[in-house]
Nucleic acid binder design. Sequence first.
DNA 1: ATTATACGCAACCATAAGGTTGCATGTCAA
DNA 2: TTGACATGCAACCTTATGGTTGCGTATAAT
Lengths: 90, 90
Amino acid sequence: MHKDLVYKALADPTRRLMLDELCERKEQTLYELTARLIVRHEVAISRQAMAKHINVLERAGLVRSEKRGKYRMLVFNDEPIRGVMNRWLK
Amino acid sequence: MHKDLVYKALADPTRRLMLDELCERKEQTLYELTARLIVRHEVAISRQAMAKHINVLERAGLVRSEKRGKYRMLVFNDEPIRGVMNRWLK
DNA sequence: ATTATACGCAACCATAAGGTTGCATGTCAA
DNA sequence: TTGACATGCAACCTTATGGTTGCGTATAAT
């Protein structure tokens, strides 16, 4: 569980929006999430770019994914964030 | 107070070490901090690179600096971190 | 069976990020 | 006042990052 990956994953605004959405709706497909970002947050992005972002989030442990048929189901996991943010707080 | 700058500032391991040190010892000069990182954390880095990192941290509001004679005094400020980490925690 | 769907993978591109070297400048000590 | 010291500034370089296009593939729908 490399914390560096968590910090780096959170450094991109698009990935933070993705976490916002996944935080609200616990389970989504990659396709749903992409559509949601485009229409609700006016993000201009391709599916392939979204897939890359999801991979970054998954390597950081912030997202768990599971292949179900032709869909990739995404679930948010807040545990890495908890282990990372208290570092400089007393 | 752009939160994006905070996330980006935290994305680099050297800057995180700098915050660690500044969190421990509230007031340091840039020179002290550089020396401390090199000897205590075995970071191979130049003074100029450190100055760049400090500027990034300052723009994010994580460090306040004040010119005192020929020294630049650095003070850690945890307020931006508090405003940034509860985003995905219930 | 054929077509549409949701996704994975790879190559490629432009910009940002982190680092270095070199030089200039203001401050302090001898 | 002269020199060492702590820092600022700018140009430059390398690699990482975020994005794209193109193609392949397994699943689902018609």
